[in-house]
Structures are given as structure tokens and as C-alpha cells.
């Protein structure tokens, strides 16, 4: 049984410019201990989907229009703020892109680290302090005993991200949602942080939802991948099959436009046009306007994810009908 099952999640933002359908019917599940990657370009709804699960969508203008998110028998979307507070930071934790804005600049690192333990009543102050120190050592901060009394600004970017990971994991959650956790970091530091998350994940047997726009990072880090476009999941499957056997034209085009995979000196493949305006009603496939393989079928109805084989699903109607072979 999956740890988290999200079904038909819709999060809309009601703005003056119209209703933005940021997340429009998203369903996926995460098993215990597995790493699920969610990739997509900016505005594809990958972060909004996960913020919705954590009750972090500002309401208004945001509104969760439909959906369920079953986490260990509880529906995260129907919970009151009080009930959510018992889950957030204890069983489901989150880390963000920019550690400086998510750490409190006025509090010593130690006080921030022990907060989750105290709030959830998992330890008294003394035990919490001891645990915080252990955690600092586990995430690889040298001289933890003295550095724990410092303020966030006294740490470098990579070290702050380590502190944030320590804070998120101190309650030993079942699920960690990591929203672009290495995007703001340099490559050599990124390599360290990814290694750290992996080690901690194995040590604690937790599941990770890894949100990223970087197909390189996701390739090495995730077991399964969901590809999002314009608020919908367009393809989902095991990492290998997503990369080696793309079965949605958007995913295929995305892979072809990465410089790392292209022979040098050649023109990079580009996707013409822009993602659709999410305030306008959309008939048919959201990628149809930019797709090289578009057909008549693509402009009608609302294409749904359909499993083709071995857990590999696509929302492309042409692939589903067998009329289109990619790569």
C-alpha cells in the first residue's frame, strides 16, 4: 500500500486576471522509502501541487477545488489546521530552495532545530538538545558543538541547507518533500547535498518527493518520475523508461533540448512557442499548440494518463492509440 495517494488534485488561484488553473487534475502515489521525482518547467504546477498537500497554499487567492490526498489513512486535504499541524514537520517534512529565507535569522540554529521536537512533544528540552547536536553531526557539520550556537547568517549556503535538512529530519518523518533543494547551490556543493539526502533517506527509510527542473539531478536521484506540463502530469514512469523511452512528445522534446546530451556544434532542439495561458479554458491536450506530432484527436476532450506498460503512463492520445512512436 502506498504511503501517499493523491487523487484528482485541483488547485486554482482566483485572481483579478481570471482563474489560474495551476494544478488541474493531478494523481500520483508514493511508496514507503521510494524517491519520486516531479519535473517540469516554471509554472508547470509542480510546487503548487506539493504545497497544496502541506496546506501551504495562501487562501485566498488559492483554493483547492477537488481531490483527495490519502496519507496513511488520513486525507491531508480535508484536515483542519490543527490536525495538519500534528502531521507537518513530524511525519511529513519539507525543505525549500533558499535556506536563508526558510530559517529564522533571529534564532540560533539550536533553537530552530529543537523546535519541531518540542512542538510535537517528542522530547524534553534536554533530550532535544542532545538530539539536535547528533543531527548536526549526522548532516556533516564540522565542529557541531560550537556551531550549533550560531545564527543562520554565520553559515555558508551549503551549510544552511544542511541545517535545514537536519531540522526537517530531526523528527524522523515518513515523507520528505524537497522543493528544488539544490537549485541555489554550486555544483560541487549540490553533489554533497544530494549525497547527504540519499544517505539520510536510507538511514531513516523515508520516502522523498523531489521537485526539480534539472533533468540531470533527477536522473541520478529518483526511482520514478512524473513529468508535469501546464498543471497536469503528462507522463509518469520509472526513471530509466522516462529517459530512454519517452512516450509523451513534451518529455521527448525536453530531453532533446538539454545541451548535455547533444553533440557539440549542433543546433539545440527547441520547443517553439510558450506554455499555454492557464487562465484560458483549454480544450484538448495542453501541449497541442507546441507539439510536432499534433493530430485532430489532440484538440478535443481532456487527455488522461493511461498506463501503457510496466507502470509507464502517458497522457498523449496519439501514443495511447498506437499511432505515434517516439525516438
Amino acid at each position: 500500500m502506498p504511503l501517499l495517494t493523491v487523487n484528482d488534485l485541483r488547485t486554482y488561484f482566483h485572481t483579478r486576471a481570471g482563474v489560474v488553473r495551476a494544478v488541474d487534475g493531478v494523481s500520483f502515489s508514493v511508496d514507503k522509502g521510494e524517491t519520486l521525482g516531479i519535473v517540469g518547467e516554471s509554472g508547470s504546477g509542480k510546487s503548487v501541487a506539493c504545497y497544496s498537500l502541506m496546506g501551504l497554499i495562501p487562501k485566498p487567492p488559492g483554493r483547492i477545488e477537488s481531490g483527495t490526498a490519502d496519507f496513511d489513512g488520513m486525507d491531508l486535504l480535508k484536515m483542519s489546521e490543527r490536525e495538519l499541524n500534528r502531521v507537518r514537520g513530524r511525519r511529513v517534512s519539507m525543505i525549500f530552495q533558499d535556506p536563508m529565507t526558510s530559517l529564522n535569522p533571529f534564532l540560533r540554529v539550536e533553537d530552530q532545530l529543537i523546535e519541531p521536537l518540542l512542538l510535537h512533544g517528542l522530547a524534553d528540552k534536554q533530550t532535544a538538545r542532545r538530539k539536535a547536536l547528533e543531527m548536526m553531526e549526522q548532516v556533516g557539520i564540522q565542529g557541531a558543538a560550537s556551531r550549533i550556537r550560531m545564527y543562520p547568517h554565520e553559515f555558508s549556503g551549503g551549510m544552511r541547507q544542511r541545517v535545514m535538512i537536519a531540522m526537517a529530519l530531526i523528527t524522523e518523518p515518513d515523507l520528505l518533500i524537497a522543493d528544488e533543494p539544490t537549485t541555489a547551490l554550486d555544483v560541487t556543493v549540490q553533489a554533497q547535498i544530494l549525497e547527504l539526502i540519499k544517505t539520510m533517506q536510507q538511514r531513516m527509510h523515508m520516502a522523498v518527493i523531489f521537485i526539480s527542473h534539472d533533468l540531470g539531478v533527477v536522473a541520478g536521484f529518483c526511482d520514478r518520475v512524473n513529468v508535469m506540463y501546464a498543471g497536469r502530469i503528462v507522463e509518469s514512469g520509472l526513471t530509466q523508461s522516462i529517459y530512454y523511452h519517452p512516450s509523451h512528445p513534451y518529455n521527448e522534446a525536453l530531453q532533446r533540448s538539454i545541451p548535455a546530451l547533444q553533440p557539440k556544434g549542433h543546433e539545440l532542439f527547441t520547443i517553439e512557442g510558450q506554455p499555454p495561458d492557464l487562465t484560458k479554458p483549454l480544450d484538448g491536450c495542453s501541449f497541442a499548440a507546441r507539439c510536432a506530432h499534433v493530430g485532430d484527436l489532440c484538440r478535443r476532450g481532456n487527455p488522461l494518463l493511461k498506463e501503457m506498460k510496466d507502470g509507464h503512463s502517458t497522457a498523449c492520445v496519439r501514443v495511447q492509440e498506437g499511432g505515434l512512436e517516439l525516438k
Binding site: 555558508s156 549556503g157 551549503g158 551549510m159 554550486d186 555544483v187 560541487t188 556543493v189 549540490q190 553533489a191 554533497q192 549525497e195 534539472d214 533533468l215 540531470g216 539531478v217 533527477v218 536522473a219 541520478g220 526513471t239 530509466q240 529517459y243 530512454y244 530531453q255 538539454i258 548535455a260 546530451l261
Partner: peptide
């Protein structure tokens, strides 16, 4: 060696040189 490659098999086999510390 730290640059991630968008290729799952190559990415998993690759030996990373992890540098200690920050610049």
C-alpha cells in the same frame, strides 16, 4: 564530475569526486 548528466544509467555508475567544504 559534479555536473549531473541527464542519463540515469551513466549517472548511477559515475564516480563523483566529492570535495570537502565550501569554496
Amino acid at each position: 564530475s559534479a555536473v549531473p548528466v541527464p542519463d540515469p544509467d551513466r549517472e548511477r555508475e559515475r564516480q563523483r569526486i566529492l570535495l570537502p567544504g565550501d569554496p
